[in-house]
Design a protein around this nucleic acid. Sequence first.
DNA 1: CGTCCTTTTGAAGAGAGTCAAACCCCGTGG
DNA 2: CCACGGGGTTTGACTCTCTTCAAAAGGACG
Lengths: 256, 256
Amino acid sequence: MLKSIHPAPGTSVSRRLSGLAQLTDPDRALLQDATLHPQLVPTARDLIVEGQRTAGPLLVLEGWLGRTRLFRDGRRQILSFLVPGDVITETACAHPVALSTITALSDARLCPAPPPNSPGLEQAYAASAALTECYLFRQIARLGRMSAYERILDWLNEMHERLALAGVAGPDSFVMPLTQEILGDALGLTSVHVNRTLQAMRRDGILEWRGGVVRMVQAARASDPSATRGTAARIAEPAAQRARPPHRASLENSAA
Amino acid sequence: MLKSIHPAPGTSVSRRLSGLAQLTDPDRALLQDATLHPQLVPTARDLIVEGQRTAGPLLVLEGWLGRTRLFRDGRRQILSFLVPGDVITETACAHPVALSTITALSDARLCPAPPPNSPGLEQAYAASAALTECYLFRQIARLGRMSAYERILDWLNEMHERLALAGVAGPDSFVMPLTQEILGDALGLTSVHVNRTLQAMRRDGILEWRGGVVRMVQAARASDPSATRGTAARIAEPAAQRARPPHRASLENSAA
DNA sequence: CGTCCTTTTGAAGAGAGTCAAACCCCGTGG
DNA sequence: CCACGGGGTTTGACTCTCTTCAAAAGGACG
């Protein structure tokens, strides 16, 4: 089914890693071989449970997974998403325990990540890890300082960018196998409010979402309020000067 | 001034790393030597600016710093805190650029981290990195699914635990050099609401905060709605004891 | 003693949550 | 073929947490 969008499903990993570092043909062959014995994980199944001992690193070949944290009272937070092309590694440590539970959010296919024998692969893994950290930072900024409208927009942009890296996204669209409730759990919102915000975005004409396919209008792409500049001495600056959170498509009242 | 709480300021790093892995005397000596030529960073000064090339890893000897992200319109989010004993590393990568700006939130003292020549040091660094990731996850869960009251409580608990690892915290108190506004920027709240929530906590008798020193009543320690709070302790084997008598409304509706 | 921050306080508003019911789409099975 | 279920999506009405916008009150310090 995904095939309608991405032509060669089995190679999302090598496409992504090739984009992150200079890979040789042997490197690619190694990755290709690794995909021969994929592990299937059906929707809603836990791949790794927090606190358990971890196996080696994995590659996501297909499907979406999420690092999730569950509160005792049932609240849930999705910490990050894992999509095709991603490398799943637990920070090496004397006691290698998983720091979070990883759940399949759609039927997924994974395989063990081949050990980095070459400098190319090693660099690719390193770059992938750096990106992962980058997305964590972005998630924090999103939850901490963005409105619901902005969170969804920013998240859609991030996912599109990530899926594009793996070659599984169209120029302005991608397959989105999540429910609005899951989206809410990732963005710190209720499914009801996710729904209402999506409707607002549709009304604003910046987004289409039918049958699990998201299509984003170009304008949506432009609205990134973060864009960091030197933090400088703003830490010490009086609060009075700092702007308030714009809502809606705003975002452009930003003084670049 | 910090001396009133921790007796030997120069060794926060070796104390913390000793707790994370089995260090030999030469290891500790190496760390000790590294602290001989500290770098001073005054409050509000940027240590590293996002996008710049990075130097090597650093050790925080004293003071608090924060990874911060600034929006174009002035909104600010503090992604994570760096406190004495912490190791600052940028994910190695072909193009080693900083993923976020690091700003001193109080006068701080740092030094270059000695390269891990021994297995002990290597493990300590790895454990430290794992903990760092753990705190990022926790920060996400905090911002995404906790109320203001819970966020502050959870954050205070985390900081106490971290400072205790470095030996710079009392049994139920620690020095907190941040303003309420900075706290708000870390927890995704306004300084006004931080203030009001703190007052509520004082009224509830679970917290004192005078003159930059926070004192937490034992009960406060127990209110962690996250099911997974043992994770950090698992990484840092020699951890403190944690009780968990239930406490405070909104948390006790937790079902195992 | 005035200035600059930070902390408090107040009143009013708005974004997001809650609760509940209706609606829809689809696969199932009578 | 169509009623039946069940998950996901929509809607509506109401509540409440947290934000806004001032402005006053402390406090540290030259």
